[in-house]
Computed example of a mutant assay.
Amino acid sequence: MSPDLSQTEDDSWSSLSDLMAGLMMVFLLIALVFMVNVEIQRHQMKQVAVLYDHVREQLYNELKIEFADDLPVWGAIIREDLSISFQRESLMFAHGSSELSVEFEQILLDFFPRYLNILSKSDYKPHIEEVRIEGHTSEGWGAKSKDEAYILNMSLSQSRTKSALAFVLALDQVKSEKAWLIDKLTANGLSSSKPIYDKNHNIDEGKSRRVEFKVRTDAEHAIATLLDTLK
Rank of each mutant, 00 (worst) to 15 (best):
E80I: 08
A164F: 07
S155A: 14
G142L: 12
K231A: 11
S191E: 03
V168T: 05
Y60R: 01
K231H: 14
L190G: 01
F67T: 00
W13G: 05
L100H: 01
A224S: 11
E103K: 02
D123C: 04
K121I: 09
R42W: 10
K121N: 15
H201I: 11
A219L: 14
W74N: 02
L190D: 08
L100D: 04
L152N: 02
Q158H: 15
V102W: 04
L227P: 02
T229C: 08
V215P: 01
L226P: 03
M45C: 09
Q173D: 10
V55C: 05
M20F: 12
S157R: 03
S176C: 03
S98R: 04
G96W: 09
R56H: 11
K64P: 06
G206C: 01
I30M: 12
D11E: 15
D53K: 10
E212D: 15
L181M: 15
I118C: 05
S17C: 11
I65H: 14
S138E: 06
M20P: 00
M154C: 10
L51V: 11
M25S: 14
L116F: 07
P113T: 07
D53L: 12
K231W: 14
S83N: 14
S155Q: 13
V26G: 03
V174I: 12
K175Y: 13
S85K: 08
L108W: 08
Q58L: 12
T229I: 06
A179S: 11
H221Y: 12
T229G: 15
P3N: 11
N200C: 05
E139G: 13
N61T: 09
S176M: 07
S157W: 01
H221D: 15
L91T: 04
W180A: 00
E148R: 10
M1E: 09
L227G: 05
F34M: 08
G189H: 04
E103H: 04
A179T: 11
L32G: 03
V36Q: 06
I118E: 05
L156I: 02
G96Y: 04
G96S: 10
K162I: 04
S98D: 11
K46M: 13
K46F: 13
S14I: 07
E103N: 08
P126D: 07
S14Y: 08
L63T: 05
G96H: 07
S120D: 10
E105S: 05
R42L: 13
S122M: 09
S122G: 08
Y52G: 07
M20V: 11
M25F: 09
K64E: 13
S14K: 09
E39M: 13
I84H: 00
L71V: 09
D204W: 03
G140I: 04
D4K: 13
I77C: 11
F34A: 15
Q41P: 01
S193M: 06
L109K: 12
Y150T: 12
H95Y: 07
I107F: 00
M24C: 07
D70F: 04
I223P: 01
F111L: 06
L156V: 03
D18Y: 09
F213M: 02
W180L: 07
L226Y: 05
L63M: 10
S90C: 05
I223R: 07
E220M: 12
F67C: 03
M45H: 11
N202D: 13
E220V: 12
K146G: 06
K146V: 13
D183W: 08
F93A: 03
D53C: 14
T161H: 04
Y60H: 14
E205Q: 11
S163Y: 03
